[in-house]
Amino acid sequence: MDKFLIKQPRSSSGPFVSSHVVPEAQRETITPSSSNVDCILGVGSLKRDPGGRKPIFEYDSNIRDVVRRHYILMGPYQPKLRVYPKTIFGTSNRQFNPEWFNAPNSAWLEYSIDDDAIFCLCCYLFKNEFESHGNARKSFTQDGFKTWNHGPERIRLHVGEVNSIHNKCLNRMLDFANQRQSIQSSLHKQSEKTKSDYRIRLNASIDVVRFLLRNGLPFRGHDESEDSNYKGLFLNF
């Protein structure tokens, strides 16, 4: 059988490896960066209308924050229409009330023209961080809400208490939006504390100098090394 085979020359350094095969350890994992997210997502992929948006958890984790930042910069979608579609509830026609856009809902409440329903921007962006998407209720995030005869009541129920999922999402969104300002504020506070500590040390040193000069006492000791038990009056104060 050997005459039908083409033998490869043996190498003293090890077995033959094709130059076209890249070793597993040398393969690079390609992860999208913020610079090419627009190319990856496509121009029209980030829908303005909340009714047509892709759930946030379906975005790759590497670009999820970029998507969040995009929607936060755009702000909640709050179209002001001359007439909103009417829906019959019992014997009455009801519709979305644009006054619901006002405070305290102005930072998060959205209206979908496509679905004729209201959504919550902060819960859409961050609810998956507090609830798994399998257990999370989709009202106000994916399905929207359109039972207009119970609108104000349902909005209050959605907002809930101080520690509700909605308020956690709202705080998360505000922190995310103010991240840069928060860092700058923190650095400013640290800088002010450093200045204050320095001023205290400086004033203490000046007081010691005045005391020693007023009483004609020496500043230095004979031995000011680290191991010395007495380094002079100035350093020992």
Score class of each variant (00 low, 15 high):
residue 209 V to K: 14
residue 199 R to M: 11
residue 187 L to Y: 03
residue 215 N to E: 07
residue 137 R to L: 07
residue 131 E to S: 11
residue 208 V to E: 13
residue 32 P to L: 10
residue 195 K to Q: 12
residue 216 G to W: 05
residue 151 G to A: 12
residue 1 M to G: 04
residue 122 C to L: 00
residue 210 R to L: 09
residue 54 K to Y: 00
residue 24 E to Q: 11
residue 14 G to Y: 00
residue 88 I to N: 14
residue 122 C to P: 02
residue 33 S to R: 13
residue 50 P to M: 03
residue 69 R to C: 06
residue 89 F to A: 15
residue 236 N to P: 03
residue 217 L to R: 15
residue 40 I to Q: 03
residue 115 D to L: 12
residue 69 R to Q: 10
residue 193 K to V: 05
residue 140 F to V: 08
residue 34 S to P: 01
residue 189 K to C: 02
residue 179 Q to V: 01
residue 203 N to G: 10
residue 160 G to A: 05
residue 162 V to F: 00
residue 131 E to C: 06
residue 197 D to F: 00
residue 72 I to S: 06
residue 207 D to I: 09
residue 203 N to Q: 15
residue 74 M to C: 11
residue 11 S to T: 01
residue 177 A to I: 06
residue 30 I to S: 12
residue 182 S to I: 09
residue 167 N to I: 02
residue 236 N to A: 09
residue 122 C to K: 04
residue 103 A to M: 14
residue 113 I to G: 02
residue 212 L to D: 01
residue 118 I to M: 12
residue 197 D to M: 02
residue 183 I to S: 07
residue 94 R to I: 08
residue 58 E to K: 08
residue 133 H to F: 08
residue 120 C to I: 09
residue 124 Y to A: 03
residue 236 N to F: 02
residue 4 F to V: 05
residue 52 G to A: 14
residue 156 R to D: 09
residue 197 D to W: 00
residue 143 D to T: 15
residue 154 R to Y: 03
residue 163 N to A: 07
residue 228 S to M: 12
residue 177 A to N: 12
residue 205 S to H: 14
residue 92 S to T: 13
residue 24 E to F: 06
residue 127 K to P: 00
residue 229 N to H: 09
residue 96 F to D: 01
residue 189 K to T: 06
residue 2 D to Y: 04
residue 195 K to V: 07
residue 119 F to I: 04
residue 130 F to M: 05
residue 51 G to A: 13
residue 64 R to G: 01
residue 11 S to Y: 00
residue 101 F to P: 04
residue 207 D to E: 15
residue 13 S to V: 03
residue 15 P to G: 04
residue 26 Q to N: 09
residue 154 R to D: 07
